[in-house]
């Protein structure tokens, strides 16, 4: 696993005119097909780090490269998010007015894929997530585990190179949590995706290839 997918170099992120420091000189790397667990207490900067890698936010200083491309030079963050990264959030964040099928299709809409392709790919993912019978159900009518599995399907829909999972099992019981993690880990291995997973659950973190600990915006364990 020498093919470097992600490089975070001395990244600093502050809020409120520098009064709040979310990240303080964070550096790490990730190879393609590798999974990295980021552990730490609430507010230690795990989610901020994922937001910066996903280009949901921009660092105050430092440099992040994904697949050799510096994120500071990305002109279209929407296209970057649609093509390169897949997000799995703690709260599934499915769109309530969309069925599970439509939710899984949603990222493909951003890529402008034809409807037939979107449908085929979304159905295949739902089948893989064991959600085919619930494909036309709205998120409000399915269980928490099913919602999160659908969210995993959505994150994988555009075949991203990097999966960013922010407390993906935070709202699930241990059984469902384990199942969700196994699902996206299996997909990641099959497709050679890199994974950065923020979690406070040591059992879930052990599923990853590597683990880093964060505290007060810094990485305690050398990456």
């Amino acid at each position: 696993m020498t093919d470097e997918l992600l490089r975070v170099h001395d990244v600093r992120k502050t809020y409120d005119k520098g009064r709040v420091i979310a990240l303080d000189g964070v550096s790490l790397t990730l190879a393609a097909g590798e999974s990295l667990a980021v552990m730490g207490p609430s507010g230690c900067g795990k989610s901020s780090l994922l937001s910066l890698i996903g280009l949901l936010d921009v660092p105050t200083s430092g440099r992040i490269e994904v697949a050799g491309q510096a994120l500071g030079e990305v002109r279209d963050p929407y296209a970057y998010r649609a093509r390169t990264v897949g997000f799995i959030f703690q709260d599934h964040h499915l769109i309530p007015a969309m069925t599970l099928l439509e939710n899984v299709e949603a990222p493909m809409v951003a890529l402008g894929l034809p409807r037939r392709v979107r449908r085929e790919r979304a159905l295949a993912l739902l089948e893989d997530m064991d959600l085919l019978p619930r494909a036309h159900a709205l998120p409000a009518t399915v269980s928490g585990g099913e919602r999160q599995r659908a969210a995993v399907g959505r994150a994988l829909a555009n075949r991203p190179r990097l999966l960013l999972a922010d407390e993906p099992t935070g709202n699930l019981d241990s059984g469902n949590g384990q199942r969700v993690v196994e699902l996206f880990m299996r997909h990641a291995r099959e497709q050679g995706l890199g994974i950065v997973m923020a979690t406070h659950n040591p059992e879930i973190a052990r599923c990853c290839d590597r683990l880093v600990l964060m505290r007060d915006g810094r990485i305690e364990t050398p990456p």
Binding site: L56, Y78, R81, A82, H93, I95, A106, A110, L111
Partner: peptide, 10 residues
């Protein structure tokens, strides 16, 4: 925000 996070443009 979620839609934009998964790649939807404004």
């Amino acid at each position: 925000g979620v839609l934009m996070a998964i790649g939807w443009s404004p």
